[in-house]
Design a protein around this nucleic acid. Structure first.
Length: 575
DNA sequence: CGTGTCAGCGCG
DNA sequence: AAAGCGCGCTGACACG
């Protein structure tokens, strides 16, 4: 069944080059740190004497050793690779020890080795997260990212242990691909952080001024918000209050006989009162001013590029998180400020309805695959079972993947189950497993976390009230695991896509045609900044990479994963 | 004074 | 139209 061609980013036969901190570390010495470069074979066994290189010489040494069949091995990609990038050195592939460790500790596909058992025993005792160090360090200390005690021997040993845990896996191909894709993603993340999303300060400022008025003095409310606030006082018939305070706002609404339980926009929208319109506008604009206003612009995008730190594997499902600037939450309101440079274009591509297509592939649901054959999966579903009502079909599908139980969404799910029993059975099975305290897995073997000891204890509780709460917690975990199998596999598809886009961009550059670079990634969407005369080539490349991702993940299956691709000047023009 | 939590809302 | 998954960030607010 799995007659896949060799997995381009997950295949065998690599040699490794370990980059570790050198022997200088005697603790706080003022000496320039040095580094060890140790070649190792496909099992991680050392294959040559280690070379010692100074920090200043490292980028050149890495560039000189780089070759197509080599994976660079380091503890953390961002810390090791960003300084190399700043020096103009890139590498084709790597093996990120830290990311691989996090994958293996939760993966049901990892071989049952001593290393894996020790990791799991340790993760029970380990505090959840090491505190994040703000890096205002210089280049030298940025290189110095290994744990102080990690000798080259220990790093080599862990590499061997990780490779053995993958090689001995009952699903070796899948796990290999997952490990390779995760590390490839880490390279992309560092490169995108360095590149940044092209950002026009003047365009952003024009948007802010148009919507909010001129930039206010620090601590002052923008003019437009100020006038909306005064209008609210008048319409609600209450003296001045702070609309930014949920408590004060709630009290003001109640005094005007608007009986809301919260100040959420969706609840406000259900009421008819002259103040509701201006209040919703106030909330929208206040959000813009605080989250993506002038201060945000100066802090994160002032120099012509928006830069955020991507946290690879930062979400349990394998999605990326971000740190700084709300990197993955750029609102539509300001996306027009993301503009291609002169002589360039942005190529914006997103995978259409990725998650339901992933579900079709996971469940081998031929009926759902058939509905997915067209460009618009939801319309395909609607035409079969929902009288052509696309909105209903979409709500039903999302409800099935999220575990909706009430409302219209919950009501429509059974209708979906009649047409796509295999797909629904797949998410139901994941939900039941989660409720029972079991773990579930993505297609390539990313495991979801175990329930906490407190969760397990609560399931055995005695009193009726405790039992009720435990049942609610069980259902909550069921919704999590139900969604996990879909979201995590979708994240894997996107990671393979991203890695293939990068591989093709590099191959093209190596053969003399520089097309452009990846500059942004958002779960199921990529943005490239490309030379204007290469825009068509870039679009084709992105489409081919999507086909590669599907083949890498699932081999030959009847499910299509179309991507919509546009070459534009402004990010706002796309979709 | 700083730190942690909550409400709310942005993104997928 | 509804409130089901995953995140990060802000201002308000409570607390030490």
């Amino acid at each position: 069944m799995e007659d896949k061609p060799p997995a381009a980013i997950g295949e065998n036969g690599w040699v490794y080059m370990v980059l570790a901190t050198g022997p200088s570390g005697d603790g706080g010495a003022a000496r320039e740190p040095s580094f060890l470069l140790q070649r190792a074979d496909a099992t991680g066994a050392p294959a040559a004497p280690a070379a010692v290189v100074s920090s200043a010489d490292l980028p050149a040494a890495v560039a000189a050793l780089e070759e197509p069949s080599l994976r660079w091995v380091w503890e953390g990609t961002r810390r090791s690779y960003l300084p190399l990038l700043r020096a103009g050195t890139t590498v084709e592939r790597c093996h990120d020890l830290s990311l691989t460790r996090e994958l293996l500790v939760l993966s049901q596909y990892a071989a049952d080795t001593g290393y894996i058992r020790a990791l799991r025993a340790d993760s029970g005792r380990r505090p959840a997260e090491q505190p994040h160090r703000d890096d205002e360090q210089d280049q030298f200390t940025l290189f110095d990212q290994q744990p102080p005690s990690a000798t080259i021997g220990a790093v080599l040993q862990e590499l061997q242990d990780q490779l053995a845990a993958v090689a001995g896996s009952p699903r070796r191909e899948r796990l290999q691909l997952l490990v390779a894709a995760e590390s490839a993603g880490a390279l992309v993340a560092a490169e995108m952080e360095r590149a940044g999303l092209p950002w026009r300060r003047d365009v952003h400022e024009e948007i802010l001024t148009r919507l909010l008025g001129p930039r206010p003095r620090p601590g002052q409310r923008p003019a437009r918000l100020d006038s909306l606030a005064r209008e609210l006082y008048r319409l609600l018939g209450v003296p001045a209050f702070n609309p930014d305070s949920p408590q004060e706002l709630l009290r003001a609404l109640h005094r005007a006989d608007i009986e809301v339980r919260s100040t959420r926009s969706w609840e406000l929208r259900e009421h008819r009162h002259p103040a509701i319109g201006p209040l919703l506008e106030y909330k929208k604009l206040a959000r813009l001013a605080s989250a993506n206003g002038w201060e945000w612009l100066e802090s994160w995008a002032g120099e012509g590029r928006f830069r955020t730190e991507y946290v690879v594997g930062g979400v349990v499902t394998g999605r990326w998180a971000s740190r700084g600037g709300g990197g993955l939450q750029i609102p539509q309101q300001v996306r027009d400020a993301a503009r291609a440079d002169e002589g360039h274009r942005l190529v914006v591509a997103d995978a259409s309805q990725l998650e339901p297509r992933i579900l079709a592939a996971l469940a081998r649901d031929d009926a759902l695959a058939a509905a997915a054959r067209g460009r618009d999966l939801y319309q395909g579903i609607a035409d079969v079972g929902f009288g052509g009502d696309r909105a209903k079909a979409k709500v039903a599908m999302l409800g099935a993947m999220y575990g909706a139980t009430t409302g219209e969404s919950g009501r429509l799910v059974p209708q979906l189950a009649r047409t796509y029993p295999r797909a629904l059975a797949t998410v139901e099975r994941a939900a039941r497993a989660g409720e029972a305290g079991e773990v579930v897995s993505s297609h390539l073997g990313r495991g979801c976390p175990e329930p906490s000891p407190a969760w397990r204890r609560a399931q055995l509780s005695a009193t009726a009230e405790e039992q009720r709460r435990a049942d609610a917690a069980a259902r909550s975990r069921g919704r999590f695991t139900r969604n996990f199998i879909v979201q995590s596999t979708a994240a894997e598809w996107a990671l393979c896509w991203l890695a293939e886009v990068r591989r093709r961009l590099r191959a093209s550059a190596a053969s003399g045609t520089f097309i452009g670079e990846l500059v942004f990634f958002l779960h199921d969407e990529v943005v490239l900044h490309v030379r204007q005369d290469q825009a068509d080539a870039a679009c084709a490349l992105v489409a081919e990479a999507a086909a590669d991702a599907t083949r890498l993940m699932f081999g030959r299956i009847p499910v299509e994963f179309p991507v919509s691709i546009a070459a534009v000047d402004s990010y706002a023009e796309a979709k």
